[in-house]
Nucleic acid binder design. Structure first.
Lengths: 303, 303
DNA sequence: ACATACTGTCGCCAAAATGGATACAATAAA
DNA sequence: TTTATTGTATCCATTTTGGCGACAGTATGT
């Protein structure tokens, strides 16, 4: 039956001063309550209750134990209630991980609204672009922007398509003449997203045909906004997602080049561990993110 | 298995970061630990641990629950240790009830020594002469002075024989002449122990033959010391136990009268509820009382 | 005084839960 | 690669459980 049930039964008997009444209140049989108390006494090696056929009262040991045990069971209930998800509302703490740029530009404001909608929810957001082990570092979920993979042990839920364009500043185009062929990327200065030593290779679809171009990378950074500023300054051609360069394109500070060259589709996805019970907080987060970013994200106004 | 074991298993897994290691430490099988955690999660309706085949780490809910649960289990152990009688030494609180006179004259000093011998023991002594329900009022034991009865649901353990004598002051005897026959009790002033309206009847053994004498009760009290003082003052004949009148008889302030009339034997007995486990504190108390008062109590120096 | 209802406890037995072994896919280490 | 170890799932014999009925003792009501 378990020690906690035994203790609970014991508390009931003390409070009602009767085995039978305690059993009735708890919805148990008299046998059960009786056995529970006996088991508890056996385990402690102490008589907790003195019973004659008609009266039950705790021994001094019983009283001492009652005081402690009552508080402990109350604490246990508090602990359970704090954790239990009997409501469908998201609650507790949501620990989230996301890439730098997207997190700073879009996810931050979005989460502010999400939290407003669910006041019982706390959010711990940590932004970084390195690989994150969702399991080991104890995140509830991670947002990543990458091509879809299937190898992961995690569940992968796509939120939206992330469009990427080749862009440059009007001034850059003016000074370098018309850009029409993919081979020009090998000579024209390019602004490359990525780590340092990895080589500057762009994978593109030339009218649907996959090609790789070893571009003339004059600058690289692992931060899209830095590259955007560099492109705006006319330093070269950059391949950047619309959620970063969207505003610059709308204002005309950057324009598309080589529109027939399209980077492969990548997706904003949310990764979370396969759970027996999908927590409401993740369920609601996915729903929320989809509503905000899905289908036609607000930063994708041009086409 | 019970919720308690489930929680313990869960704590083990969190602490060791592994189901298998937790199982080894706790001396359980992997199945068992696994089932325990699953059951706990099921009951709470929350995923507590995220596991891939090689890594285990708590979810945010799991961490929250861990914190609470660890403290709760620790508290429970404290509570158990406080109550458990794993030592044979008496400990805890001994709640004792005893008659007024005996308690004040002899039991008090005795208990002082008893407590000195067992420093872990607290004593709550309450003295009164009314009937006490050991069970209902929560006493661990009661001392009574009475004829042995068998009707009680309590265990009755005799400590020692309580001798009672008919006594009077030398002055009283001198002024009333020799006292030799039981019938004289009907005319001579007698000091009666007992409640008010009960009538003044003494039950005596006249050379082994039971007789009852309706004595000439000029004074009654429900307190032996008061009667002793009255007898010393020469107010009459009293039937009193030696543990009260012993000193007065030794000093000669009181002397026996009618030595062939003997009150029926009464006993100092200790009563306690029938317990599955006889607590050491009661066991030791009985032993102690017997050593101090048994066989030949120190107040019985005369014969 | 008597009957009645209710108490705590015990024994019994069908039903349910448990725990161990085994198997298996996934993963880390060698 | 191979090997060892992890978490989990499935069986199944064994144990445990919980409810029923009975019992002696005791309040309560008449």
């Amino acid at each position: 039956m378990g020690k906690f049930s035994h203790i609970r039964a014991f508390l009931g008997v003390v409070e009602h001063g009767s085995f039978a009444e305690a059993a009735r209140q708890a919805g148990l049989s008299r046998s059960q309550v009786n056995k529970a108390v006996i088991a508890l006494e056996e385990e402690l090696g102490v008589q907790l209750l003195v019973r004659t056929t008609r009266k039950v009262s705790p021994t001094s040991s019983g009283e001492a134990f009652y005081t402690h045990a009552a508080r402990i069971l109350a604490d246990l209930e508090v602990a359970e209630r704090a954790v239990r998800e009997d409501t469908e509302e998201p609650r507790g703490t949501l620990r989230l991980n996301a890439p730098m740029s997207f997190g700073a530009l879009h996810l931050g404001p979005a989460l502010a609204d999400f939290m407003k909608a669910y006041p019982d929810l706390k959010v711990e957001l940590s932004l970084n672009d390195r690989f994150v082990d969702v399991v080991e570092e104890g995140y509830d979920a991670t947002l990543r922007i990458a091509e879809l993979r299937e190898d992961s042990a995690l569940i992968e839920h796509p939120i939206t398509l992330v469009r990427r364009y080749l862009v440059a500043s009007p001034g850059f185009i003016k000074s370098h003449g018309p850009i029409e062929r993919a081979e020009q990327l090998k000579s024209l200065p390019c602004l490359h997203y990525g780590a340092l030593g990895r080589g500057h290779v762009w994978r593109l679809l030339d009218d649907g045909k996959a090609i790789t171009v070893d571009v003339n990378g004059v600058m690289s950074a692992n931060n899209g906004e830095v590259l955007t500023e560099a492109a705006k300054a006319g330093l070269g051609i950059a391949m950047l997602p619309t959620f970063i360069v969207g505003p610059a394109m709308q204002s005309g500070a950057l324009v598309r080049v080589l529109p027939n060259l399209v980077p492969p589709d990548i997706h904003l996805t949310i990764l979370y561990p396969p759970n027996r019970h999908l927590t409401p907080k993740i369920k609601y987060l996915i729903e929320f993110l989809y509503k905000r970013f899905g289908e036609r994200p607000y930063w994708d106004l041009i086409e």
